[in-house]
Amino acid sequence: MSDESTQAYNIAVQEETSRLRTLHPTPEDIPSCMTLFDEFLSCNMVGKQFRALYRFGEMAHCTPKFNEFKFCMSVKGLHPEQRRDEWIRHRAEWWARRRVGTSSESVWDVRAEPLGSYPPPLSHDDVTLGKLID
């Protein structure tokens, strides 16, 4: 990674860590290993596989869900607060990679400010003649 993308990644990790700490204030707020295992099993169900095949032309990829379960099992022996911290770090890094990496939305340029004349101003005649319906 370049220095600029590394810096953007580190900033994204910090922002996501802060956001996740707010969303998950206690160790009981993070998902349990059983919940993650259920999500993995659910991904492999016939209905979800057919839906993925229909929508995307390929079977659903369940490996990321299994990796989440394995990560949960690897931190299961930690103190609950340490487990929460590790889970938040892990998820913050995942979100940061998604934010900094490319996606289907990468083709759009983000505007710093709105367009000057959009939407065009309406006159009194436009409103009274029903031109809003057009």
Rank of each mutant, 00 (worst) to 15 (best):
F56Y: 11
G116P: 03
F50I: 14
T17K: 11
V75M: 07
A92T: 06
F66N: 11
E58V: 07
V46T: 09
S32V: 04
H90D: 09
P121R: 08
P25Q: 03
D3V: 09
E4D: 13
E15A: 09
V46C: 07
Q82T: 13
E81M: 12
R83V: 02
W108V: 12
H79K: 15
I30C: 01
K48P: 06
L53C: 05
R51N: 08
F56P: 02
R83Q: 15
P25C: 00
R19T: 05
M73T: 15
R111D: 11
F56H: 14
F37M: 14
Y118G: 01
P31T: 04
L122Y: 06
G116Y: 06
P120S: 05
R91W: 04
C62W: 04
K76E: 14
E105G: 10
R83P: 02
G116S: 08
L78N: 05
W94M: 14
L78P: 00
L20A: 02
V75R: 01
G77T: 12
E68G: 01
N44L: 15
N44T: 10
T26E: 13
D3P: 09
K70L: 14
G77K: 15
S5Q: 09
P31M: 01
A52S: 15
G130N: 04
D3H: 06
P27K: 00
H24Y: 15
T35C: 02
P25V: 00
S104I: 13
Y118R: 05
D134Q: 08
L78M: 15
R83T: 01
S123V: 04
K48F: 10
P27W: 02
S2P: 04
S104E: 11
D38H: 08
N67H: 13
F40I: 07
A8Y: 02
E4Q: 12
W95M: 14
G116N: 06
S18T: 13
P80V: 02
A8G: 00
I88C: 03
F69W: 15
H24A: 05
T17V: 01
V107W: 05
R111M: 14
S104M: 10
L20W: 04
T26G: 01
S106N: 08
D125W: 06
G47M: 09
K131L: 09
L41K: 13
N44M: 14
L36A: 06
P114A: 02
T6P: 00
L36R: 12
E58Y: 08
R97A: 13
T17W: 03
S2A: 10
D109E: 12
C43G: 07
F66C: 09
K65F: 09
S32L: 02
R111E: 13
E28Y: 05
P64D: 05
